[in-house]
Amino acid sequence: MQGEGTLAMSIYGRLRRDILTGLFEPGERLPLDALGERYRVGLTPLREALNRLSAEELVLRKGKRGFRVAPVSRADLVDLATTLCWVVEVALRQSLAKGDEAWEEAVVLAAHRLQRLDSRLPSHETGVDPEWQRRHIDFHMSLIAASGLRRINDFFATLIDRYDRYMYLGVDATARWPRDTAAEHKAILDAVMARDADLAVRLLQAHIRRTAEIVEASWTARLSDDEIAPGATLVSESS
C-alpha cells in the first residue's frame, strides 16, 4: 500500500500531466471532491499535490474559493519563448564546445528515436501523441546535455514543460498553418553534427519561435474572420 507521500507524488505527476496536456482547461476550477473521485484519492495527498503544482505556477490557489488551473496568455507565451531562446544561446553553445563522441552518439540516438515516430507528429486530427512528446523532449534535452551547466539544463527542462502546454493548446492550428517539424529537427541535428554553433543556435531558436507564432496566430484568428499568418514579431531574432 502506498504511503501518503508516495501517493501525493503519484497524484502530482498525473495532475501535472493532465494540466500540461490540456485535459484541464486554463482557468478551470479544480474542486477537491471531483478530483478525489477522478483520481481515487483522499484529500490530504490531493492537497499536497495541488500545493506543489501551485508552487510551480501551474495551479492557482484562490483562498477559500479553492484551486484553479493557471491561465495562459500571450504575455506568458512570449516570456517563455524569449527565455528559452536565451537559455539555448548559452546551453547549446557550451554543449557543442564540450561535447565528446559519446554525446554526439546520444544526440543521434535521441533524434533517431524521435524520427521513428514521425507518423505520430502533432496534428489537428490526432492531437499530440504522449510517446512522441516524450521523445521530443528527450531530443531537445540531449542537445544541451554536454553543457556542464546543471542548473541551466534543469531550468531548460522546466521551461520546455511549460512551453509544451502551449503546443498542446495550439495543435488545432496545424491544419491552418502546417509546419514540417521533422525537417526542422533534421536541420538542427545536421548543424549540431557539423559543430556549426551559430547555425545550430539559430535553427533551434527558430524552431522555438515557430511554435509561439502558430499559437499566437491561432489565438488571433479566433478573434477575427481574416486569415492571419503567423508573424515573426512575436519573439524577435535578437531576443
Rank of each mutant, 00 (worst) to 15 (best):
L223C: 03
F155Q: 03
D76S: 08
T44Y: 01
A111T: 10
W132V: 04
T158V: 11
D196L: 06
A197R: 02
V235T: 12
L15S: 10
R195M: 00
V90K: 11
I160Y: 06
R202N: 10
K62M: 12
L30G: 01
E89S: 15
S73W: 00
L143V: 11
L114Y: 14
W103K: 11
V107R: 04
P130W: 13
A173S: 12
E57F: 00
G13K: 05
L30W: 05
C85G: 15
Q205P: 11
D129S: 05
N153I: 02
T6W: 03
M141K: 13
Q2W: 08
L53Y: 03
G13R: 13
F24I: 03
E4V: 15
Q115C: 01
R151P: 00
G36T: 03
R165T: 01
L109V: 00
L117H: 02
D226T: 14
A183W: 04
T233R: 12
G22Q: 07
E237V: 11
F156E: 03
R14L: 07
Y166I: 08
D180P: 05
F155V: 07
R165K: 09
Q205D: 08
L109T: 03
Q94C: 04
R135D: 11
D18R: 10
R134L: 14
L204M: 10
R210A: 11
A206Y: 05
L169N: 05
E37D: 15
D100F: 02
F139P: 14
P178R: 14
A175S: 09
W177P: 06
F67Y: 15
L149M: 15
A183D: 15
V107F: 05
T83V: 11
V107G: 07
A229D: 12
R209W: 10
P122N: 02
T83I: 11
V41Y: 04
D33A: 14
W219R: 12
T82L: 12
A157H: 09
S142P: 01
A206L: 08
H112M: 00
A97V: 09
K186N: 10
K186C: 09
A175R: 13
T233K: 15
N51I: 01
R134V: 15
L109K: 10
I160D: 15
E105H: 03
T211D: 12
Q115L: 08
E56T: 01
R210T: 11
Y166M: 11
R209K: 14
R120T: 03
P178C: 13
I137L: 13
R209N: 14
I160K: 02
H124G: 15
